[in-house]
Design a protein around this nucleic acid. Structure first.
Length: 330
DNA sequence: CCTAATTATCGTCAGGCACA
DNA sequence: TGTGCCTGACGATAATTAGG
């Protein structure tokens, strides 16, 4: 349940975590007991039977998810529009819309700004969440030193001794495990296990990098197998361990240096490689962006749910004050 | 059960923005 | 100014849902 992860997206009197979907429609205030003078803790009963502790009702203005005045107002309006005003989208010129939307700050920026308001607001980190990093079925593997996930969803575990295990997420547990041993890996220096992965490229190969600046290339077309190839054969995909001339940074493709390119064909190949690299990076960026957007929207939804609770309490308190200030006289 | 409609997900492109 | 990153938009495809 995402509530478990995102209930602290903003600073708010709600201090108990709750796990219920569609809260904005289901939250109700079942308890009362608003205290005057001291911030009393009020129990808010959720339809699921869970309770939420709301401390006080009248408080200092809450730091809103919508912070900087204009830009983010547009943002919420955009989100709210998506369901109900599809017609208006047809009316709006796409270029104008693009201009408006392009001025929106990034989700990470918005949430990180929020995080500066209080310690309860988590920042959106670059790294993946815990559950993404450690898939359940990997736990059955033989104590790997490092586990990585490729952009295609495969899990790669570098075990002690240089054994690389590859797990397909679609398969059950060890069934999807593929193991290969680096013949020339040697013992990596402690703490230096770095794997860089790459998406499947257009030529059907999948690459990732292992310690020692070596490159493991998955080849689905069973292309040439060098002498240092260390992969399995048969139905399983083959892997090659190649030694690039230089330690590549985040670059993925072992491209020849521009100076060594001569023929137009080589230039075209280089351009193709660059394009593939760019597409791969953008693919990953888009995934990450969508993940952040989901997180951001969930924070907004939880904000709505909490504000609804707060609004109900304020209405209740207003009614109470009305009764006190204007008692009925018979 | 089948089919159409709706929703979700993904890859790609384009444009803005920050930074060296 | 070039480069890389971020993100909205768009189209394609898969998955899910509703209706007959």
């Amino acid at each position: 349940m995402w509530w478990h992860q995102h209930n602290l997206c903003f600073r708010h009197p709600v201090e108990e975590d709750y796990s219920s979907g569609d809260l904005e429609k289901k939250v109700s205030v079942a308890g009362s007991g608003t205290g005057r003078g001291s911030p009393a803790v009020t129990l808010v009963q959720l339809p699921s039977g869970q309770t939420v502790h709301v401390r006080g009702v009248i408080q200092t203005p809450q730091p809103s998810v919508i912070q900087s005045p204009q830009i983010q107002t547009v943002q919420v309006a955009t989100i709210a529009e998506t369901d109900e005003s599809a017609e208006s989208e047809d009316v709006i010129d796409s270029h104008k819309r693009r201009e408006i939307l392009s001025r929106r700050p990034s989700y990470r920026k918005i949430l990180n700004e929020l995080s500066s308001d209080g310690p309860g607001v988590p920042k959106i980190e670059e790294e993946k969440s815990e559950e993404e990093r450690t898939p359940p079925h990997i736990a059955t593997m033989a104590v790997p030193t490092s586990i990585y996930q490729t952009s295609t969803g495969q899990y790669i575990a570098i075990a002690q001794g240089g054994t690389i295990q590859i797990s397909n997420p679609g398969s059950d547990g060890v069934q999807g495990l593929q193991a290969l041993t680096m013949t020339n890996s040697g013992a990596p220096p402690p703490g230096a296990t770095i794997v860089q992965y790459a998406a499947q490229s257009a030529d059907g190969t999948q690459q990732f990098f292992v310690p020692g600046s070596q490159v493991v290339v998955q080849d689905e077309e069973t292309e040439l197998a060098p002498s240092h190839m260390a992969a399995a054969t048969g139905d399983m995909p083959t892997y090659q361990i190649r030694a690039p001339t230089t330690a590549l940074p985040q670059g993925v493709v072992m491209a020849a240096s521009p100076g060594s390119l001569h023929s137009p064909q080589q230039l075209a190949e280089e351009a193709t490689r660059k394009r593939e690299l760019r597409l791969m990076k953008n693919r990953e960026a888009a995934k990450e962006c969508r993940r952040r957007k989901k997180e951001y929207v969930k924070c907004l939804e939880s904000r709505v749910a909490v504000l609804e609770v707060q609004n109900k309490k304020l209405i209740e308190e207003l009614e109470t004050l009305k009764d006190i200030c204007s008692p009925k006289t018979d």
